[in-house]
Amino acid sequence: MVAQKGRDLLLKIDGGNGLVTVAGLRSKRLAFNAETVDITDAESAGRWRELLGGAGVQRASLTGDGIFKDQASDVAVRTAFFAGSILAWQIVLPAFGTVTGPFQITALEYSGEHNGEIRFELALESAGSLGFGSL
């Protein structure tokens, strides 16, 4: 994969009228994790740990910070956070694909300097099965 512009990683939310880009994220991080299930016992070969494939819980998390695209985006994200809503989100990874599925906002922070714009930080955690689509 050839190097891609970080700004092209997009975050979209389905607020009921289809997917719309919600934020001008300046930095973002998407992480996939899977728990392991240890099935090692006294008869494990050479006393090496053994894992049970496909048994652990998988999850995805996204963190980012930046500026909201517009007032409607700020309202949509803030409303989802305070309601504890689980909504459909899509993360677009250029030259890779899209990750789509239910996420919950687990952190929302606002900050700003006296001579600058208001910024926000956001954290999302997957809340169900995720799909992957190629671009």
Rank of each mutant, 00 (worst) to 15 (best):
Q4K: 15
G6H: 09
D8T: 07
D8G: 06
D8C: 10
D8F: 11
L10C: 07
L10A: 11
L11M: 07
I13P: 01
I13F: 06
I13C: 12
D14K: 10
G15D: 13
G15W: 02
G15H: 04
N17G: 14
L19I: 07
L19F: 15
V20Y: 12
V20I: 14
T21A: 05
V22P: 00
G24P: 00
G24W: 02
L25T: 08
R26P: 00
R26C: 13
R26H: 14
R26T: 10
R26S: 14
R26Q: 15
S27A: 13
R29E: 15
R29S: 15
R29C: 10
L30D: 01
L30K: 02
A31P: 08
F32C: 00
N33K: 11
N33G: 11
T36C: 02
T36A: 09
I39M: 03
I39N: 07
T40M: 09
T40V: 07
D41Y: 15
A42Y: 04
E43T: 15
E43N: 14
S44F: 07
S44W: 14
G46V: 06
G46T: 05
G46Y: 04
G46E: 12
R47I: 06
R47H: 13
W48H: 08
R49Y: 03
G53R: 09
G53L: 12
G54F: 08
G54D: 05
G56A: 07
Q58D: 10
R59F: 02
R59G: 10
A60D: 01
S61R: 13
S61P: 02
L62F: 15
G64Q: 02
D65N: 15
G66D: 13
G66M: 09
G66W: 05
F68P: 01
F68W: 12
D70Q: 03
D70L: 01
Q71R: 12
S73D: 05
D74C: 11
A76S: 10
V77Q: 10
V77D: 04
T79G: 04
T79V: 10
A80I: 00
A80H: 02
A80N: 07
F81K: 10
F81E: 01
F81C: 14
F82E: 11
F82R: 15
A83H: 13
A83G: 11
G84R: 07
S85C: 00
I86L: 05
I86D: 06
L87S: 10
W89I: 09
W89V: 05
W89Y: 15
Q90K: 13
I91A: 05
L93M: 11
A95W: 04
F96P: 00
T98M: 08
V99I: 14
T100A: 15
T100G: 08
G101P: 01
P102F: 00
P102V: 00
P102E: 06
F103C: 05
Q104E: 10
I105Q: 03
T106P: 02
T106S: 14
T106Y: 01
Y110K: 09
Y110M: 05
G112R: 11
E113D: 13
H114F: 13
N115R: 12
G116F: 06
E117R: 14
I118H: 08
R119N: 06
F120M: 13
E121Q: 15
E121Y: 04
L124T: 06
L124H: 03
E125I: 03
E125K: 09
S126G: 07
G128S: 06
G128W: 04
S129N: 13
S129W: 01
L130M: 09
L130Y: 00
F132V: 13
G133L: 06
G133V: 05
G133Q: 12
S134Q: 15
S134N: 06
S134H: 02
L135S: 12
